[in-house]
Design a protein around this nucleic acid. Structure first.
Lengths: 119, 119
DNA sequence: GTGACACTCAAGTAATCACTTCACTATTGA
DNA sequence: TCAATAGTGAAGTGATTACTTGAGTGTCAC
């Protein structure tokens, strides 16, 4: 009974996981306004620099943010299109759901005594 | 220094956290095709019923799914508009980012020697 | 060179997560 | 009535998360 199911983090796992933390979302919000150094990103958050760097790593691993170091300053910026994976998954769900609702409405129009759920 | 910043899980936290697990996304995907009982939701997943019920609770708490029990069967379905919070957050980021890129492109067209990042 | 700055790395910890098993309660079809 | 069905609840476990502190490393300004 090899129910070998994926243990590891697919891209979507990493992405949604990254977005699930308010501090990380705050950093993404900040970065949509323009590039920032690690310290600039840290400033509004009441936590150690180390903690911020760890959040940043999660964001980079998820593909939402990229950064490069020049001298002693690491500058971070949004990875263009980084959100598109999540966006597309949500969009696919919405359209599938809406198509189903349309078919259901059509069915109900044709069969007024049915609730569309009861078999 | 009472850095009391975060106390509780905002709705977005719960939502993205719920979507961060592949089993839970699988259940959402299944439910966009139509309502299902707990056992039906559990069938494709190589885990105990108890585990599935726990995932289900996360999905309900996040507002993505709702369910009601009739007799001994609990029927689950998508909560309409449940995804819209996440959708809107992503959308807001994208448009903010794109607006910034537009301004940047305009600036670069006007100032060809500047990279738009270096101060 | 010296000292301040901007990180970087490693280790430790408390809380949360994703499960498991086992015991239990309703409901239903024969 | 009785056994199978469908789910519920509690307790336990090992892995992961979100931090902390503390001790570096390379860079820049003077």
């Amino acid at each position: 009974m090899s129910g070998l199911q994926q243990s590891t983090s697919a891209p979507l796992d990493l992405m949604f996981q990254a977005l699930a933390d308010p501090a990380r979302r705050g950093m993404v919000e900040r970065l949509t306004l323009g590039p920032a150094s690690v310290s600039e990103l840290a400033a509004p958050h009441a936590m150690s620099l180390s903690a911020v760097v760890q959040h940043l790593r999660v964001l980079e691993d998820s593909g939402l943010v990229r950064s490069q170091k020049v001298g002693r300053v690491r500058t971070c910026q949004i990875q263009p299109g980084g959100l598109s994976l999540a966006e597309q998954w949500i969009n696919d769900r919405r359209t599938t759901w809406e198509r189903r609702l349309d078919r259901l409405a059509q069915y109900l129009a044709d069969h007024p005594d049915d609730d569309g759920v009861t078999p």
